[in-house]
Simulated assay, not measured.
Amino acid sequence: MRAIIFLAIVGVAFGNLCKGVNKRDINAAFAAARVGSAAIFGNSCPGFDFDSVALSGKCKAIVKQATCYGLQAASHYDSDVVNYGQLASDVSNMEELGNLACAQARGCFLQVSAAMEACKAANADFVQDTIDAAESAYKENFEDKAAAFAKSSKGSLLGDLASMALDRFSSADDIQDFIEEHLTEGVKSDASAAAAEAQALAKGWCDDGCTSSTARFLEGIFGHMNGGGCDDASEFCGECQSRAASYFARNQLPCCIEKVVRRGIVAYDYVIANYSDALESYGAAVGSGLSASGLAEAKAIRDRVVEEFGCVSAVYSANRPECA
């Protein structure tokens, strides 16, 4: 079984997501990445080379294919309203990228990690120098734009949040102080455990070939949901919920998805049980900084999310698969 899964992964891994993508767009994306890399690592690690780290070895295929997918997706979803037909037709692309990640993401991570370790060995102040460079790049290229957005969007939720962030964080030191203020030993321990759990889930997902089985299920349900009164993928309650329920009546949710969903529910319950007071405190602090219109927008978004989640939860709860 594992051998079959491996052959399937290898077969998909060499699929070409760059087919049909303009080479000039790909080259432009890589050129921008090189400029950004030089700005961030130019002083802290002069020996860092973007091409040798990101466009060779274990990272070559996954970086190029992910770049091409991003370019394709920008065009594919360039519409005022995204429908389930668009999602269905994009599933095979996501499947190829997912299987490629299963095959090569760990190797690419180790390759990048080795490059970072080499930078640290060559410069004892590598981390701080890199942070300083990133802060300078932000101030030179984005700070004015962020301030202009906050000013022009005053009174909206995003505008208010941008203004609050600009007031609260004026430097990398401010961000570090904020993190250290809230990063207790308990938080560190929980974060470490969550990371280990996520890694184990990802490994199990890949080992079981869950990317492809999930893709087939999503193609089916998205295709079934598309049409009738279900014409907006951002809305689920109503006609879309009814069409989804009718699909579930004849098609079982793959057990590998169920496993991830159940672990997610356990994690959510743990967060609520252990961090609800802190979350309420953060929410109150943010709410007190919003304008009346921004607060009203936030509440409307919250109410819609709660309603939509309730509809999704109802379909899932009524159609949970029986898994070992």
Rank of each mutant, 00 (worst) to 15 (best):
F142I: 07
H182D: 15
D167L: 10
M164A: 12
Y138L: 14
A146C: 08
D144Q: 11
A137M: 13
G159Y: 07
F142S: 14
F149G: 10
E135R: 01
A172F: 07
F149E: 15
F169V: 08
S136N: 09
G159H: 06
E181R: 02
N141D: 15
Q176L: 13
K145L: 13
A165D: 13
L183D: 15
R168P: 03
R168S: 14
D173M: 08
T184K: 07
D167V: 01
E140F: 02
K151R: 11
D144S: 12
S136C: 03
E143D: 14
G159R: 02
E181F: 04
S152Q: 14
D160F: 05
S171P: 03
I179F: 10
Y138H: 11
F169I: 08
S170K: 09
L161F: 09
D173T: 06
E181V: 00
E143T: 00
A172I: 04
E140Y: 01
I175K: 05
S163Q: 14
S170L: 05
K139M: 12
L158Y: 03
E140N: 11
N141T: 09
L166A: 08
N141L: 09
F142G: 10
A147Q: 11
L157I: 07
F178A: 15
A146T: 01
A147R: 05
F178T: 08
L158T: 04
F142T: 08
G155C: 08
E135Y: 02
S170D: 15
Y138Q: 13
L183H: 10
